[in-house]
Computed example of a mutant assay.
Amino acid sequence: MNYRITVLPGDGVGPEVMAEGMKVLEAVAKKFGHTFKLEYELIGAVAIDKTDFALPEETLKMCKKSDAVMLAAVGDPRYDDPKLPVHPEDGLLALRKGLGLFANIRPVKVFDELVNASTLKAEVLKGTDFIFVRELTGGVYFAKPKKEWLTTKGRKATDSMTYSEQEIERIVRVGFELARSRKKRLVSVDKANVLKSSRLWRQVAIEVSKDYPDVALSHVLVDACAMQLIRTPTAFDVIVTENLFGDILTDESAQLAGSMGMLPSASLAGIPQSGKPTFGLFEPIHGSAPSIAGKDIANPIATILTVAMMLRYSLALEKEAASVEKAVEVVLKQGYRTDDIMADGNTRVGTRQMGDLIAAEV
């Protein structure tokens, strides 16, 4: 089969980890007889430097023509000043909106070999394996009014948290579909004791649950969820929540796996169903990490596992996805580690060597 992939290496360590992800994808192509046409485009700081735009029009056009999009990272300290007219992260937000990517899927799995990499007790973490479903194009990040102004008493600023029942319904359905394919448990996270938008969220979740009688739905307030993720992470299977809450909770969950360099993500434009392709943008959850760029020490595993998610969700290639995930597991069992997950008794490897090892195992 032939597939067209838009590749966005981005900033910082992005090009380094993306190179290893594409190395593994090439190994998949050779093993299973596929052809992946890779088309590279600009996004983030590197795009601003060359075009003055964080998301050039040509990049968005190319993405829309593709079967899937792979993104590494955006961000550059040169653009940290909030007074600047454009920032690298603007490109990512515009890309999500431009491609209609409303569902962010973040699996959180603690490999047995890395159970001691986290600061939490091993007995708490062992067996952790759940999926976060985060609404991505609504809520406080996008709703209006959104402004800052000067009053006679000083400066003020406002952001609006707004959700329609249609936005809530489609993201909750993603959660139910994923839960149905796993342990049939869905937790919906909100702040219904305080927020009107959360009360609507809970009402819609209950209404949608009638279409999924085989899935057990429960509701957890966001602050309680934050505590439970640390105390009993193995209690979760699939978690669905709105944009801001999901942004915070998924980064918290990243620490369960020992490093943000271990976790992939997918942003989908449709409701995933087994065996059917769903267009999406696939990216590791970590940032551009400019302080370690070019040093061959960044962990490429999150990007490599992101390749597996692309194979599974956008290309409907389940065997190929599983082969990548298995290769990662085998290499970890062999004791190879990048700096961020290094421990006594392991073999330290760099970004490129880790990619080589996993590609060879595929």
Rank of each mutant, 00 (worst) to 15 (best):
L93I: 15
A192S: 15
S188F: 07
V172D: 02
V174H: 02
V189N: 01
Y163R: 11
E89H: 08
R134Q: 08
T152K: 15
D90E: 11
I105G: 01
F132H: 03
K196C: 09
V172F: 01
F130P: 05
V215D: 09
K184Y: 03
V108P: 03
K146W: 00
D112Y: 00
A179L: 05
R180T: 12
A205K: 06
K147C: 05
R134S: 06
V140A: 11
R185L: 00
G75E: 10
F132S: 01
P85R: 12
R199I: 15
L114Q: 07
T152H: 10
K196T: 15
R180E: 14
I171F: 02
D129G: 02
N104M: 01
P213S: 14
A143M: 10
A192W: 00
P77S: 11
K121N: 12
A216R: 03
L217M: 09
G154F: 04
Y79I: 06
K191W: 06
V215E: 12
E169H: 09
P77W: 07
E169T: 13
E113P: 04
L125P: 09
A179P: 08
K153L: 13
S160G: 08
S198A: 14
T151Y: 05
K156A: 14
I171R: 01
Y212N: 04
H87I: 12
S198V: 12
A94D: 14
K183T: 04
E165V: 12
Y141P: 09
R173K: 15
R173S: 04
K156Q: 15
G127C: 04
F130W: 04
V133M: 02
T128A: 06
Y212Q: 08
K183F: 02
G91C: 09
R106S: 02
F111Q: 13
K153V: 10
L92G: 08
P77A: 12
D159M: 12
V208A: 07
G127E: 10
A205G: 10
E167W: 00
K153C: 06
D159N: 13
K146Y: 04
R78F: 00
V108S: 08
F176H: 04
L125S: 07
V204M: 07
L195R: 02
L93C: 04
K109P: 02
E113V: 14
P213A: 13
E165F: 06
S188R: 03
A192L: 05
V208N: 05
A192I: 04
E167T: 13
Y141R: 11
E113S: 15
P213D: 14
A122G: 04
D159L: 13
V189Y: 01
N116W: 01
V108R: 03
K191N: 11
E123K: 11
Q203A: 14
W149T: 11
K183H: 11
L71W: 04
L125G: 08
D76L: 09
K184I: 11
N193L: 10
L178C: 01
F111D: 15
M161F: 00
E113M: 10
P213W: 06
A216D: 14
E177V: 03
V215P: 05
R202G: 06
